[in-house]
Design a protein around this nucleic acid. Structure first.
Lengths: 252, 252
DNA sequence: AGTGAGGGTTGATCCAGATCAAGCTAGTTT
DNA sequence: AAACTAGCTTGATCTGGATCAACCCTCACT
């Protein structure tokens, strides 16, 4: 992960059964035969480049996408050219789940760095899942996970202050890198300060100041996009300490 | 809807096929035979009273719930006794979807007024849905809708100011009452100012001041829990006008 | 009718984080 | 290597909404 420009193009086209994401992704917990059936309907894209869109808001919904390598951001554009960043998606994460109900995308998805994705034709998927109960159940679980995650973000935006938000964000990234076999201490951000701020409901300047402060406090080292978490426990303490203060002040 | 204390207890036990929520709820779009199968596994509760819990955070997940009459709030309690209100649920809305993945509830659900709910044993539901493709698809849609809704809330908490949030909240309630056959102009709030503020990421005092201001501006009449929307278009303008201003200022 | 408690309202003050304004840096283009 | 550009940082100032502090209803219970 130290040299993030090295991307293994050989395994982009690899089948689900041989994909190292099999424990995170849709095939999780499926029988090999079922994985193979799923594998057959999945299309694997050529590598996409920074700025490419998987889909745009209001596009017709035909595919679910899974990040295979790289990272993708989803965002809801609003009339005036502004946007709300809804999420940053790492390998193994499904994109487009909010489009199922209306058959039309509610957000746009833009590639943050050279990335590969798997495309799952949704109508074929629905057919297949009606014949494979464990696939259906796995899909329920993934949809449910997305709901849980969004609800955690609601609590973050509704209640946490700026430093808690950034600490939470960094710890979440760290955790997700870890479960994908990358270093949880040393990674590169594929998104800009601006995008982080937008995602966390904060101004760019606030993000910048917080990075500086966290570095001064010895919590991390930051050099542009390169982040090294020096004191992960310290970041956890930020979340917990503020909770104890709230305790005293009796805030809801 | 003007006298909200009148609740028809006769039809609480009514089957799905005769329930007036059939167009909003799980059975939407199902064949009558399939509705009947679904109906068989659903339990209908005795009326619940203000303050009763459907479930508490970290309870094992066994049932999905649908509000039949009345209203329910879901909230994520945090260690210190504070909470984040996640949603207010009206008849026909499913509760507990965030618990599917881990088999454990991530939030608590508390009844806001005398209410009736349907309980759907999830394991039986999963079995049934694997034999009824249209039920499975409907479940995907409802999960997807929940994700869309949460994402809209993320945009609200991330970008909108206090008056936009309250206007949005009132318009959403109005819309939901309307699609349930109640007046979209004249309704009672079943939640406190405190709960509204918590939900919208604002202080109680701010909610109170905004109600007063909206009333002074002739947008609505408010008398404790009783709300009459006098100028719905005016509320829409609040959302749009602020967007135009942002336009000028070039905010993201 | 009196008392108490849990909302709700209103006013005064405060502050975290936004906004405004420069300047800086690393890449890219010419 | 000069000129541009986009992204980032830093400082100064401003402000929307939080917080603090009374006070006021309404209703439930004696």
């Amino acid at each position: 992960m130290n040299d993030r420009t090295v991307i293994s193009f050989e395994n982009i086209k690899i089948a689900c059964s041989g994909c190292n994401l099999v424990t995170l992704c849709l095939p999780m917990g499926l029988d090999p035969d079922d994985v193979e059936q799923l594998n057959k309907i999945i299309k694997r894209s050529r590598p996409l480049h920074r700025g490419d869109h998987l889909f745009m808001e209001s596009d017709r919904f035909n595919y679910l996408y899974v990040v295979k390598t790289g990272s993708v951001k989803t965002y809801a554009p609003n009339e005036d050219g502004g946007e709300q960043v809804l999420g940053f998606h790492l390998p193994g994460e499904l994109i487009g789940l909010d489009a199922i109900e209306e058959g039309r995308h509610h957000c746009s998805a833009k590639v943050l760095e050279t990335s590969a994705v798997c495309e799952i034709p949704f109508s074929q998927f629905v057919e297949l899942s009606s014949t494979i109960p464990s696939l259906q159940h796995q899909m329920y679980r993934l949809l449910s996970r997305e709901i849980s995650h969004d609800e955690e973000m609601l609590a973050l935006l509704g209640k946490k202050n700026a430093e808690e938000r950034l600490a939470d964000f960094l710890l979440s990234l760290s955790q997700r890198f870890k479960s994908r076999g990358f270093s949880p201490f040393d990674f590169y951000l594929s998104m800009s300060r601006h995008e982080i701020g937008n995602y966390l409901g904060l101004a760019v300047e606030t993000i910048s100041r917080l990075f500086t402060r966290f570095q001064d406090e010895g919590l991390l080292k930051v050099e542009r996009k390169h982040i090294q978490l020096v004191n992960i426990e310290g970041l956890h303490v930020i979340l917990r300490r503020e909770q104890r203060e709230e305790n005293r002040r009796q805030i809801t």
